[in-house]
Design a binder for these strands. Structure first.
Lengths: 217, 217
DNA sequence: TAAAGAAGTAACTAGTTAGTGCGTTAAGTG
DNA sequence: CACTTAACGCACTAACTAGTTACTTCTTTA
């Protein structure tokens, strides 16, 4: 190229960093899988966007599906770990529940890739997630966190009895997730921009109301 | 349609039948798109399963995306038309609302392709649905149906005021849709078969409770 | 410091894929 | 019946795609 001027070709020191390359691949893969689904994503595109050679993907992740599985595991562990950092036990039950709903909403809003990745995994009948024991374990923690919160609320007389923590978890996810993952068809069908600032504010308010009315006495 | 032995113009079995071929293609396409998404579905597979020549797909629908768009429009019109047949005006407001929730649940349960097709369309940012004026019109009817129901409930003193019909519609869809579309990851994460008979019964019961508590005084 | 092995690359393969050109045949019409 | 139109089928292609081969270059450590 340009450096043949002097006798000794000034060889730029190639930076070799397995961890960094792996991380770049994972990051690019997350974006590509989220944007196009597992089937629609292109391995070549992922390699290019990761500024890595395609061979490295197969070196580190074995296959396109292996890469998808790793991405999926990563995003699940990320949300589960963020949930654990909420420290709901420091708040009174109602405030804690509201905080959990609001957190879920904001997490989905800031990490829309999570939504499409989960959709994609469900299109594939959960075959990749099945293999991840660590995701299962961290999810058990989430359920027990909500269970503890419910128990405490009942003891303090603010929550009613008989609410299944799993159903509650699913419902909190549902009211937030559905609105955001279906924001495109939703905006068409309901003929309003579901992502406008006031629409978003209206929705989180409505969702908190839905969950509070469901759980409180 | 097997009669007409004599006299009247015996309807010969038509070897060439544009409508029938079109219908077979649409049916096969619905299944394939639902199973694999727009990107994952294969035109050759659709043609084979429709027992039609691939050329016919391009003859009738122009392109793979044109076919997808037609399928999408069809399934939306189907659910919208089924909703209109509920005749909620014949029931008292609470019973009508419960009927709507139950209908939504059962429709999704019986037509799981609807869920994946909508997910696929949202992955593509709603670009196909945007073009369908008739879907928009039929959706407006749904909102006004729920709006009318809410008004009536308020007048009769059973529903509270200030519930936005669009938010309510979205929420009814959400609690039902999310559970079913994410049944695979859900079954892994919550370590129970979300599709078992008693799990399904538990969920529809919970969903009715959620919506009733949200709307009723 | 030399050898081993890990990181990284380019070019390739074998199989797929959406979409077409063009010819054939059935069905409706005057 | 002749003629036109529309339904249908075969066989092809150009581009793409996951995965691989065979190699070079850098880094670590015995």
């Amino acid at each position: 190229m340009t450096s043949e001027q002097t006798e000794k070709p000034v060889r730029k020191p190639r930076i070799r960093d397995a961890e960094a390359t792996k991380a770049r691949i994972l990051d690019a893969a997350k974006k590509e899988f989220a944007k196009n689904g597992l089937g629609g994503a292109r391995v070549d595109d992922i390699a290019e966007k990761a500024k890595a050679n395609k061979r490295m993907i197969y070196h580190y992740f074995e296959s396109k599906e292996g890469l998808f599985q790793t991405v999926l595991e990563e995003v699940y562990l990320d949300i589960r770990s963020a949930e654990q950092k909420l420290h709901l036990e420091d708040l009174d039950p109602k405030a804690a529940l509201e905080k959990l709903v609001r957190f879920t909403w904001e997490y989905y809003l800031k990490n829309p890739e999570f939504l499409t990745l989960v959709n994609s995994e469900n299109l594939h009948r959960g075959k990749h997630l099945k293999k991840s024991e660590i995701v299962k374990a961290s999810s058990r923690k989430l359920v027990s966190m909500v269970d503890t919160l419910l128990e405490r609320g009942i003891r303090e007389g603010v929550f009613r009895e008989g609410v299944d923590p799993v159903q509650l978890n699913i419902t909190i996810a549902a009211v937030n997730y559905y609105y955001l993952t279906n924001r495109f068809t939703g905006s068409i069908i309901y003929d309003r921009d579901l992502m406008a600032k006031d629409a978003l504010e209206g929705r989180i308010h409505f969702n908190i109301e839905t969950i509070m009315r469901l759980v409180c006495r």
